[in-house]
Design a protein around this nucleic acid. Structure first.
Lengths: 104, 104
DNA sequence: AAAATACTTAGGTAATAGCTTAAGTGATTG
DNA sequence: CAATCACTTAAGCTATTACCTAAGTATTTT
């Protein structure tokens, strides 16, 4: 998942696909690399579940799978909120000790 | 950013840090690798902005920077919602043509 | 049926990533 | 002040990644 998104070319492909489905050559067109290279990137996006493809006739159509994307999003979110909870508890603790100080 | 999160060891380190700050050796302890390897991973996390560190005496303390994490989260979210908007427009179009069919 | 299109497969190469061990450095402890 | 501790630096090694070119294989077109 993160592995698949770690490459700038693949992120560009995901960005393109977020605007709608595309064929392999359409995905390749803006990228400065050979078609086989694009196909390799595509294979990674597919095996990570980010993209699904189906071949109709001689053209392969690629579409984004957003449910796979939200997995990555949720992982990040979980770590962020975990951290946030910790900060909140720390805040509570500091407030508490401030009260105790005030009582003295 | 995604580059930094693409390695499982680094994700484990981020996960550990989401529970609170840790020293380099504390980060290294659960990982099956040498300390220099951990330091290399840490350097990546730091240069990506995900983690900030400061050295006090001889121990380096590492903390998570959640604002950097939300950048990655937002990138994913932007692509996902872009896709969602497209599906919505497609739905509108289909509804529209359905109405036109109904008029015939 | 020949030619063009849209990939696909099969190699091969150069750069990078992810480790390792060995030998520092600078701060604390006994 | 010698030893220990917590890293840090340096060098090197292997496997993977990100490409490439060349030569296929199906599908359309003409």
């Amino acid at each position: 998942m993160f592995q698949a998104l770690s490459d700038p070319s693949r992120r560009a492909m995901v960005e393109r696909l977020s605007h709608g489905p595309a064929s392999v050559s359409q995905l390749a067109e803006p990228l400065a690399m050979s078609l086989p290279a694009v196909v390799q990137h595509l294979a990674m996006l597919e095996s990570s579940g980010l993209v699904t493809t189906q071949k109709i006739g001689r053209v392969r159509s690629c579409t984004l799978d957003t449910s796979a994307m939200s997995n990555a999003e949720q992982w990040i979110n979980a770590r962020r909120t975990q951290w946030q909870r910790r900060l909140d508890r720390l805040g509570d603790y500091l407030d508490e000790t401030a009260d105790e100080d005030a009582l003295k």
